[in-house]
Every structure is written in C-alpha cells, then in structure tokens.
Design a binder for these strands. Structure first.
Lengths: 331, 331
DNA sequence: CTGAAAGCGCTAACAC
DNA sequence: GTGTTAGCGCTTTCAG
C-alpha cells in the first residue's frame, strides 16, 4: 500500500502539500494536478486510521441493537443511509437483549473511538453511559428510554399506542382481553403494559391476571404464551401482543391449535410489518413511524457529533397510528 | 481520556511496561498489580485506533449486503457472532443491489483498513476485487459468485435447489409452471433459472415464455410480476418464486386478487423464512442452510485473516433441502 | 503557496 | 524484567 510519503516523493513536494490537496485546501493548480495524477497512478488511498489518530475523529458511529430482526434493521437502514450521507460509517453489533453484552459492546465501541452511538438499551438502567456522554461522545437512545439518567432519545408514545390498540378491541365489543407483553425491565414493555391497564381503568373494567403474560419480546415467547393463553379453561376473546416478533409467534400458536382469528380470538399487534399486513387474516396493528425514528435519531446524532446542539437532553416522542384489519373484525 | 502515558507516569514505569501488561506479556507481578489498579482507577481504555496504526491490524471486518432484510441479516448475525468470538468487529453497510454503491462501500472499507470483508456481490463482475485480494485483504463472497474472477465463496447449489422445487411441482401434477426470477446479472438469478429450465428439459416439456418473468429480488417486483402472471388469459397453474422477498410480494398479489393457493395457483419459494412457514397456506420452500453459510464464511474469513490457509480460492457449495407444505398440495 | 517538524497513542526491537 | 527509542501514516502549526 502506497502512503502519502510515496506520493510526496514522486511528486517532489512535501507530505504537507499532498495532505492539502487531499483535504481540498488551497494549493497551486499545477502541483495539484500533478499530485492528483500521481495519486491515481499509484492507486493511493489515504489511511483513515492514521488520519483518525491525528484528528481524533473516526467518522464512525456505533449501533447497538438487541437483534438484527426486521424492526431494528429497518431503523438501522435509514439511520445508516442518513449518516452515510454525512460521511459516517456504521460499526454494528447486537446485544442479544442482554445488558452485560450491551455494556461490553459499548465499551468496545469506545475503544474503537467511535464518534457517537445509537443504542436500543436492553434494560432501563444505563448509568454507565453518563461517563461516556460526559467525555463528549454523544449517545442517542432509540425505541426505549432509561429511567436512571436523562439522555437523548427518540421513541414512540407507547402508552397511548397500546391504549389505542386495546381501546379498539373494546370498541369492537371484546371484553376478555389478554396481553402478551415483553420484558418489563425495558420501558417499551412497561409503557405498553401501562397503556393496557389504563384502558381497563378508563372503561371501569376488571383485569384478569390469568390472561396477562410477560415474555421477552422473542418469537418463541410469543408462541409459548399464546399457547398457554389459549389452553386456559377460559381463554381470552382477544389478545394484545406487544411487539412484532411475539405476534409472529402468537400467530404460529393459533394456527397450530386450529384456532380461528378473529372468530375464536382477536389479535392486535404492536408494530406493523410485512407479516402483519400479509398474514391471514391481516392483523390490526399499532404502527410506529419507523422511518421517522431512524431519520430523527440519525440527524440528532449528527448534530451532536458536530457539537451543533445545546447540551440538554432531547426527547422525541412520536405518535403511533392504528391500522385496523381483519384480525379484530368480529362479525 | 487518559492515555498509556498517564498510566505509565502514575505507576512510575515506562509506557512499554504498561503496554506489556495490556498485551499479557511477562511483567513482574507486583508492578502488574499496581498498573492494573491504576488503569482501573483512571478508567483508562486503550485507544484501538492508535494500536491499529502501529500493528496494521484493525480487528474489524467489513460486511456488504444488498439490503438489511431477513435473509442476509440472519447470515450476518451468525458471522458476526463467530468473528466477535475471535475479537473482530463488524463494519456493516448495504449496497442497495447497486454495483456502483457496492464498489464505493468496499473502497471505503479499504480506507478504514478492515482486515477482511464479507460481501454479497450485486453483479457477476468483480474484477476490481482482485487488486484488494492481492494486497492481502481477504474477501469472501456469500450467496452469489463472480464470473470473471476466482475468489473464495460460500453459497448453495442453486441449480439443483431450484430443480428440486420445480420438479416437486411436476411430481404433484402441475404442468403450466411459471417462474418469478431475480436479476440474471447475479448468479443466484441465473443459476436458479437454469435449474428451472433443466427440469423442463429432463421431463421433455415445453416452456411458455409468457410465464417466465425477471424482477430484481425485491418484494415489490414479486408483487408486480405475480399480478401480471395471474392476469394472463392463461395464467400459470404453479409459480416458482426465486427468493424470499419476492415470495412475500407474490403472496400479497394473490391475496389482493382473491386467488386461492394452492387451488388456483401453487407456489414454491426459494428461501425459507418465518413468512413461508407461517403464511396461509404455509409455503413449500427450498431451504438454504443459513446458519451454516454464515458460520463457514466467518471461519474461512478468520483463517484467511490469520494467513492460516493456502492461497487457492475455496468454494463451498452447500446443498439445499425442500420443505413441502400446503402451498403445493393440490388435492 | 509550500516545507520542516512535531506529535496523535500505541507497539516492538533493542539495549540494559 | 524494564526502559529507550523509533516509528505506524497522517495533519497541522509555524516559518519562510
């Protein structure tokens, strides 16, 4: 691999001059031409590692997601696209919904000197992040927030999103409404559950704890919990499933059991995906503005990395919408 | 951020000694203890950028995929998991099925000095990769191969996979079998088409060009082509869809049109996903050993990065299996 | 407009 | 077992 020295030598100029043309600074037109030609001829590519060491900027951001499933990768894709446009690259890793692993990944990202990080936290505690933030490395939370610290985050109004979904079921005449929820140690789980409870409160209805289940957001847990629910002597008439992966599992369960949707059980999914749209029947879903989430998070991160934004933590709470489909259409 | 110098100063040793404990080399137990304590106390983290500049190893690999959809991310996940175990991190990017973009991404990865790259090429020409490979940066192709150069790759036997799927349709008594294929400039498209053709040849059947369609592997193109196919005056009795994204689109189309599967049209999908398994009806699928692909590719890349493997290009052609489901079960 | 020189944070001979 | 020293490839004052 040729270095800047090789170019300088061949062009009979100093490395400083080569560096200047590389960085678009003012240089005599002729020498510039000459240098450019030599660069091309040698196939020279600047070593970004060396540049980073000097400039203290890697032009790389970290992404830490629980998994590489559809939901998070949709967000990741737009975020990467946006930040790519600003010249940033993405160091991606998954935490497996495991706080220890998450911590290890972030530590590694720090050692790799990323300029910022986008993270979907796996618990509601993130105290260890403050040190990082104080060092001037911006961190933006996506989808879930933290309870112990104030930090930038972009997510949806989970409480009202869930409320909307559950209320729709009530409007449709369902009374015995169960919930398949995710981990409560994560704010999406806790908030969506809160929305569920609030509907019952507002409509002055009783909750049956038997049909309230907590899983871990995975397809498997959705499957297991749906099986349990529908095996009850008094199964629910409708189920609110609190994320897209669990919805897939839940649908698998009912199909295996030969249970009809919505005749035997109605279903509302938090999250709208190709699956909910194409399922038979199509599933009523609380839809998150996925694209917007990614875009806002990426732009905020960019501004933070440029130091272009005041220090106080920003919080974006986006609204969800409800897409009503056949899975709640009891006739 | 404290540096190795700060640690050395505080411990009253040279930076070399600190470096030694960092790298697990032999150092007096007492001073080692002392240094470790100071490191902890200062919250010192080695700057991997600096280390990389010196060692010429970044312990980072690049991943270039056409998109962040289910299929590629499943592979990416296991690859990252494996390589993480060896201490490598993943710089991920997508090429959007665009050869120019792919080239740009790889160029960038080179500038970032990745130690190796995993790529799903977006065309069958990859001449520009040879220069890189010659510089000692290993490149492993996944899922698709290149026609103009010999280079490591791990993929499946697409011809026989498609053959298996189409032959199954014939066995089931279908005669008028259409195909929704991907881009032929990509080997998966070309090979799967070849498998399709070969069945007709072997069974001495005529092909009707009207029901042979070429899209671009996307959900949208699957949707469009299925609509076209089923709007024909003589629509196919069965359709072989050559990747998982197009299968989703195709199913959407038939549902919208009120066409029943398999009664009105049978469907076989190349690629098995949650969608094909949970669809109504479940879809017969050619299943790729996704986990194995990721694992083999990652391990091969690792060995290459260590220089542990002879120079000649390796090619892994894994076998697919057929999962027969209701979508081809004409009764 | 250009060059000399220092230095980013680390490692690795080479001496001691 | 430990310190000295010379870079890795680049950017960036500071002179000229």
């Amino acid at each position: 691999m040729p270095t800047i020295k090789d170019v300088a030598a061949k062009a009979e100029v100093s490395t400083a001059t080569v560096s200047r043309v590389l960085n678009g600074e003012k240089v005599n037109e002729d020498t510039k031409e000459k240098i450019l030609k030599i660069i091309k001829h040698l196939g020279y590519r600047p070593n970004l590692i060396a540049r980073s060491l000097k400039t203290q900027k890697t032009h790389t951001f970290g992404l830490v997601v629980p998994d590489y499933g559809q939901f998070f990768m949709q967000i990741a894709k737009v975020a990467e696209d946006v930040l790519n446009g600003y010249g940033y690259n993405m160091l991606a890793c998954f935490s497996d919904e495991n706080p220890e692993k998450e911590k290890a990944r972030i530590k590694m990202l720090m050692e790799k000197q990323v300029d910022g990080v986008l993270v979907v936290p796996t618990s509601d505690q993130g105290n260890y992040l403050t040190k990082i933030n104080e060092r001037g490395i911006p961190i933006i939370l996506i989808d879930r927030m933290l309870k112990d610290i104030q930090i930038d985050c972009v997510l949806v109004d989970n409480v009202n999103g869930a409320y909307q979904g559950v209320e729709h079921l009530i409007t449709k005449g369902y009374q015995r409404i169960g919930i398949i929820n995710g981990r409560q140690e994560v704010t999406t789980g806790e908030e969506r559950y809160r929305g569920y409870l609030r509907v019952f409160e507002d409509y002055n209805l009783q909750i049956d704890r038997d049909i309230v289940r907590f899983g871990n957001f995975s397809t498997e847990s959705g499957y297991t919990m749906m099986k349990e629910l529908m095996s009850l002597s008094e199964p629910p008439a409708a189920v609110f499933v609190s994320n897209c992966y669990m919805t897939i599992g839940a649908m698998l369960a009912v199909k295996e059991m030969g249970i009809r949707v919505p005749e035997d059980v109605a279903i509302v999914s938090f999250d709208d995906t190709e699956f909910t749209r194409l399922s038979t029947p199509p599933i009523t879903a609380v839809v998150q503005p996925v694209h917007e989430i990614g875009e806002i998070a990426a732009n905020l991160l960019y501004k933070r990395m440029c130091g272009e934004v005041p220090d106080n933590p920003k919080m974006y709470r986006l609204k969800t919408t409800l897409s009503i489909r056949a899975s709640t259409n009891q006739s």
